Each structure stands twice: as C-alpha cells, then as structure tokens.
Computed example of a mutant assay.
Amino acid sequence: MGLSEDPELQAVLFGLFLSMYLVTVLGNLLIVLATISDSHLHTPMYFFLSNLSLADIGFTSTTVPKMIVDIQLGSRAISYAGCLAQMSFLILFGCLDGMLLTVMAYDRFVAICHPLHYTVIMHPHLCGIFVLVSFSLSLLDSQLHNLIILQFTYFKCVDIPNFFCDPSQLFHLVCLDPVTNNLIMYFVGALSGFLPLSGILFSYYKILSSILRISSPGGKYKAFSTCGSHLTVVCLFYGTAIGIYLSSAVSLSPREGAVASMMYTVVTPMLNPFIYSLRNRDITNALWRRHSRRI
C-alpha cells in the first residue's frame, strides 16, 4: 500500500527515499573503505563495524529500491515469491545487525574489563567465528519465518499496509487467530531480539560496574567514551524496532505503522555512519588521511 496514495506526494517520496538510500550506501561504504585501507583500524572493533555497515547496506537495500521503482512505475504489486524473498532478506540482515551489535558489546566488555588480555581473547580467528556464527543464526531465523508462513494458506491479491513485506503483517494475513498470531510473533521476536539484547545489557552491566571502580574522573570518561557510538546505535536500532513490534499488538492505522517502520528500516541504517564518524575520532582521522593522500 506504500506510504501515501496522493499523486502529488509521489515525486517528493521518490526524491526523499532515493536521497536517503544513496546517503546510507555511500556512508556505510566509506566506513568499510576506511576500515580496509587504514592499518590503524585493523582491530576487532572496526572489523565488526565494517561488517555492521555491510549488513546495514543489505538491510536497507531489501526495501528502499523496490519502493523507489514502485513509485517510478506507479505500481505497488509484488509476487508471492518476491514477497517471501524480501521478508527473508529483511530478517536476515536485520537479525545480523542485532547479532553484530551484541558481538561489539562483548568486544567493548573485554576491552574495558579485561584490557591486559584483550589481544589474546579477541584474536582474528575468534572474530571471524563470531561473524560466521552471527550470520548463521540470522539465516536460521530468516528461514524459520519462511517455514512458518509456508505452513499456512497461500495468499494472493491482498493488501499489505506497509511499503515492504513486513513479517508482522504477513502473519496477520495467514489463517491464524489473534492469540496464536501474537504468540508466534513474540516467540520469533524473542529469538531475534530479546536474546541479543540480553547479551548487550549484560555486557554493559559488567562495563558499568568496571567503570565505577575507576577512581579518576578522566579514566571513567575515557573508558565510557569508547562505548558512546555503539551505545547510541544500540538505543536507536532496538528502540525503534522494539517499538514497532510492541505496537503491532495495538491498533495503529496502516499509515502510522508504515511511517513507524520506516524509522528502523531506512532512517537507522542511514544515521549509523554519521554516529560512528562524528563520535569516533579514529574513523574521522582515517577518512581525513585517505582524503589527504588523494589530494
């Protein structure tokens, strides 16, 4: 159904989403490029950050290009197979975002609570395993959603009150009573959201306990400043995503739900590069050094 049926708004929406998509892709690619090209950033934290940027590109690429094409062609139709594919990739990259944020929280926990053993614990082999496991669990969660949908009635010629094939909306379309539908939603939400968030909260509980034991205010600020960007992204990502899924049980209008979904599918991946580049001096210096070499 898109965001609006008003013909006068279609050009505005086209320009807005195209601009946001280009900013998202270019911003995240800059972080990946800076991480690869600058030897100062060859550390576990920036290795995970570059993978998070790639996941953000994939996450927003599952929804925005299709909407841009739909606005340009004046058609909002999507095939049954295409809808399931879009849902699968959306969950894959969205869950991967959450998993990588959890791994990054663990990385900060080791760096602050066990600084002398950091290089031994967070060696490159373990970092690669973390990313591989995160991708595997995300793929498993994605296919779990597909299997649940495929078990029920094939549906066609239906309206999805969003600008993409939102999993929560697809569950509402299958032949389930509201109680069963909510139970499934909360179960898969716990797997993909609650467990990673629990790991993040536990890591920051340990980090905060360690920081409070530091005597000097300067030491406390320095320790906590290394977590500032990550903590901001966590609050932005999980704050919007949890709000959407909790509000699915509340009667929101279709347009309100679509606008709310835009926050975590489009706006959050676009803001992540700005958060990490503006709040992180290493990224800023790496980009500046690369720009200086080109000049």
Rank of each mutant, 00 (worst) to 15 (best):
M1L: 14
G2M: 01
S4D: 04
E8L: 11
S19H: 09
V23N: 01
V25K: 07
V25G: 13
L26F: 03
L30K: 09
L33Y: 12
A34V: 12
T35W: 13
I36S: 07
S37A: 13
S39A: 13
H40E: 07
M45Q: 15
Y46N: 09
F47K: 14
F48I: 02
L49R: 06
D56K: 10
G58H: 12
S61Y: 02
T63W: 02
K66W: 04
M67R: 01
M67G: 00
D70L: 01
R76A: 15
S79Q: 14
Y80E: 09
Y80S: 04
Y80C: 01
C83V: 02
C83M: 03
L84A: 03
L84D: 09
A85P: 01
L90R: 00
L90K: 01
I91R: 01
C95Y: 09
L96A: 12
M99I: 00
M99Q: 11
L100M: 10
L100C: 03
T102N: 05
A105T: 03
Y106H: 08
R108H: 15
F109M: 12
V110A: 08
I112V: 15
H114E: 14
P115L: 10
T119I: 02
I121N: 01
P124E: 12
H125N: 03
L126P: 05
V131K: 01
V131S: 07
L137V: 11
L139V: 11
Q143D: 13
H145T: 09
I148T: 12
I149N: 02
I149H: 01
I149R: 00
L150I: 15
Y154E: 11
Y154F: 12
Y154T: 13
F155Q: 08
K156Y: 14
K156W: 12
V158G: 05
I160D: 05
P161N: 04
C165K: 10
H172M: 03
H172L: 07
C175W: 00
P178V: 02
V179N: 08
N181K: 12
N182Y: 14
M185Y: 00
F187N: 06
F187I: 07
V188D: 14
L191V: 11
S192D: 11
L195N: 02
P196T: 04
S198E: 12
S198K: 12
L201F: 15
F202H: 10
S203N: 04
Y204F: 12
L208I: 02
I211T: 02
R213S: 05
S215G: 09
S215N: 13
G219K: 08
K220E: 11
Y221Q: 10
K222Y: 05
C227W: 10
G228D: 08
H230T: 13
T232L: 09
C235L: 10
Y238W: 14
A241C: 10
I244G: 02
L246R: 07
S247F: 07
S248H: 05
S251W: 15
A258E: 14
S261P: 06
M262W: 14
M263E: 02
T265K: 01
T265V: 04
V267E: 13
V267L: 13
M270P: 10
P273V: 10
Y276S: 03
L278Q: 06
R281P: 08
D282N: 13
I283P: 12
T284L: 11
T284M: 15
W288S: 13
S292K: 15
R293C: 05
R293W: 03
R294G: 04
